[in-house]
Every structure is written in C-alpha cells, then in structure tokens.
Design a protein around this nucleic acid. Structure first.
Lengths: 250, 250
DNA sequence: ACAAAAGTGTTCCGCATACACCCATGC
DNA sequence: GCATGGGTGTATGCGGAACACTTTTGT
C-alpha cells in the first residue's frame, strides 16, 4: 500500500483545558490496547482523522463535541505536529490499526486548544465513561506524542491571555468574584499575586463591571460579583490588540 | 481513486519575508498554467508536499532551500490551512495535476514564516528564474489561498517581534545603524517612530552593543554602528520571555 | 554656507511593585 | 469573640509618549 506512506493522514488533536476553580485540568480519554501479549490502559487526547469535506476548525469542534457541549467554546488552532515517528510506538501502531481500521503510515496532526471552566452544570455526554479530567500536575505518560502536544498548548495559554485578556473569562462563571479571577491568573502565571494590586488592575479594566450583588451565606465578609462586558471590551480594543501589524500599508 | 479523497495530502507553504532596507518583500514563484484554452501566468508561495519520512520543519527548510541559502534562517511554523476548497479553483486543480502528477483530492498545508534581510550578497540559486521578491504592498491575486496565508503570516510578524525582540535582528545586517533598526520597526508597525525615544529604547537594550565604528563617505554626520549580542540577550531573558506559563507547577 | 541626516534631554503620565491593616459574616 | 476571607491606599520607579535644536560631514 504505497499510497499510505506517500499520502499522510491528517488528524486533529484537542487539548481541552478546564479550570475547576483552583487548577487546570486536561480532558483525556481512556485507551485500552494490546502490546505484545499484554493489554494496557493509558490515556490520550481527544482526536481523530478529519473527514474529507471538513475544514480543520469544524473537525476540532466535532471531536470535542463528542464529549462536551461546545456551544460558545473557546477553541483555537495552535500548532501542528508532523514528526514521521510520532505514531510509530508499537502500542500506538497496533491501537491505530484497530481503531481506524486502516493501515496507517503516518499522521500529521493539527493541535487545537480549548479553554473553559469546569462548572457543576458541565457534564460529559451521557454514557461517556472514557472521558476524564486530569489535573495538569498529575498527567502521566500519554499515548503518541500527546505529552508534547499538551506541553506546547500550556505554553500557548499565557501568551493567548496576555495578547487577548478577554480569554480569561472563558475560565470564569458569568458572575465571578475578584478572588476567583485572581486565582485564575495565579494558576496561569504560577505565582501568588498581590491582592491590592490585583484589585487596582481589575478596576482599570473598563470591561470588568462590578455588580450590586454579593456572595451569600459565606462565613466571612461577602465578596462582590463582577461580570465581563464584551461590548465594552471590543469598544476599548476595537478588535485590534496592541502591536498589530500594518505591513500592508498604514 | 477513493484514497485520494479519504487521505488528504499534506504540504508546506512558506511565506519568506525579506526586508530590503525600506520595506518588506515576499518571495514568490512564477507559475504558468492552463485554464480552459488559455494559458495564464501568476504567482504562488514556495511550497510542496512533504516527503514520507520528513518532518515538517525539515520540509520547510528543503522548500525554501530550493531558492535561497537557509543557513541560520529564521523559519517558524505559524498556522495550518485546511479548507476542503482551498485547492478547488479550476486553475489550481489543473496546475496541481500537472505539477504533482497525481490526482489531488485535498491538501492540508502547514504555513511557515521566514524572516531575513535582503542584502547585496543574497542571491537566488543559479538559474532560478522563477523566484522573485515582491513588495508586500504590490502583491496581487495569488494562487490557491496564498493571499490568505500571506495575510496571516504578516499578522504574525509583529507578535513574534514583540514576544521575542531578538527576531528583528534577522532583518538587519550584522553591523547596523540606529536608523536602520528604526526603519525596520517603522515598517513593522506601519508608523514613524520618534527618533529620540528610539535611541533611548535602544540604549535600554543591553544586548544591542554600540561599536566604535562609524559610517564612512556619507554626506552628513556619520552614524554609529551597533551589533546584536546573542549571549547577552539570553542572559537577560534566560531563554524565557515575560508572560511564560507555569501551569505545570512553579 | 548649505543640505542632509545623526544625535541628544526633559516633562508628564500610566502602570507595576511593594507593603499592613480594618471589615463583614457565620459559627 | 474568633476565625475566615474581603477589601482598601500610599510611595517609588520604570518605561512610553510628546516635543526642538545642535552636530557632523560632503559638496
């Protein structure tokens, strides 16, 4: 089957990062396979071959959508991976042949990154027993080159948030307190942030609007709720971020 | 040939941006094809299918290397393009069948961006009559979706330079004057920059070291030369840029 | 002496950083 | 009343932005 070596397959792999209020988790799927005469269980990213008439973004939505509701999901292509050896581990070769029902020569994969908050209302699709959230710190050895893909995705996240501050609100509920927002930033940057300075930073964001609503039933002073205002945000940034290019002319 | 629709091909397309001292140019290849009974001439990005045992970065180097010397070339993957219709224009279908000698169903392409300076010593490989530099402002309608690819690459450039200031020095000679460097930034940001502020900015960059060498034979005050010091740069930045992620733990 | 580009200093403002105490609430 | 987390103000320093004149050199 020379076609299979000449013509690589194309897949999409999705690094779905969910913030649970204190840390980041990645959505992984349980995989069972055979290596030699042994069976093994490990984990992989949600991913799959693209359909012949499907564009990349659609494929990514479809693949994530097999496990969670993707309405209004932040989902962004971030990097492609095409090492010829990325699917050549015996475990992976064997698993692929069973899963895809094709002899696979090589797969180039397009990496997608999704950001969302893990809320009490977020549910895996019914009967989806293979999908689990794994805290980033506890991710072990994954299938294929998926550790590398996760690593690169994580590297992306901060840059995305810095470039476009509105993306953090994907990680927060509609109403959120200042400390919820601060905890997200602390997780992103891996260090504690000064509370007073963070309040000032927030108050300098015109698109973070304070509400006249407060926490209830808490064993301490009730925190104020805020919300993110998209319209104000786009008015402020005008759709462009600082450092935009104008190489095509002013 | 159902394989061809099921298994897309994978190519690499390279947006090679060359700065000529005053503006950015993109490396394009002349293409001659047939549409209906007419022949036509237009331009395309350098690109091609990946080899079966080649990784993506290597393919990009190979493809750019067919036209210019890629020693120490800044070359970076920036985005993939996979619309099913991106190669479906009749001109492109016909041209591909001749060029690739295969019936092509669909091509997913990985976009690469290269940055370099166009110097007097830069030469296209001998007899390479198809490769030309086209100023970005003068780029017309290109083959396939190459206009879109160029557009996205140009959008990338500023962000890359902002994230990693050392990349600008790919666009400058080893020794450069302050105004040469300023002109690069002005072209990048599409606006004139204040001369005094730019000098201060430069003097705040420890890795831009002033030399005791000056222009000669110029009909005005001779400008000082500077050089970029990689070692100092990496000492300053430690290999990391501000806003790096530490999601894996501190 | 003139044309042409190089080089230089000050002020103002916004933002980041560092730092310590009082407030509201439930138990 | 105490434990728990929420909320607040001041001082300092750096870097971005605005702004005009003198210096050097070849012709």
């Amino acid at each position: 089957m020379p076609e299979n070596t000449l013509y690589p397959h194309v897949s999409v792999d999705c690094v779905v990062l969910g913030f649970d209020g204190s840390q980041f988790n990645v959505l992984l799927l349980k995989r069972t396979g055979i290596e030699g005469s042994q069976t093994f269980n490990d984990l992989k990213l949600p991913g799959g071959l693209i359909f012949s008439d499907e564009n990349l973004d659609d494929a990514a939505h479809r693949i994530v959508g097999e496990h969670i509701n993707t309405n209004a999901l932040f989902l962004k292509q971030f990097k492609s991976f095409g090492s010829p050896s990325r699917t050549s581990h015996p475990r992976d070769v064997h698993w692929l042949e069973k899963a895809v029902q094709l002899k696979i020569g090589r797969i180039v994969t397009i990496g997608y990154l999704a950001l969302l908050r893990i809320s009490s209302t977020l549910r895996f699709h019914s009967k989806d027993v293979q999908a689990i959230w794994v805290p980033l710190q506890q991710v072990g050895t994954l299938a294929f080159d998926h550790n590398q893909i996760v690593e690169e995705a994580v590297r992306e996240v901060c840059e995305i948030v810095v470039r476009d501050p509105s993306t953090v609100f994907n990680l927060l509920p509609k109403r959120f307190t200042a400390s919820q927002m601060r905890v997200v930033y602390e997780a992103l940057f891996g260090q504690p942030l000064d509370v007073r300075n963070f309040h000032k930073k927030m108050s300098r964001m015109p698109y973070v609007v304070p509400l006249d609503e407060f926490e209830k039933q808490v064993a301490h002073r009730a925190a104020r709720y805020y919300r993110f205002d998209k319209k104000i945000y786009f008015k402020v940034y005008g759709g462009f971020y600082p450092g935009r290019s104008s190489l095509y002319g002013q």
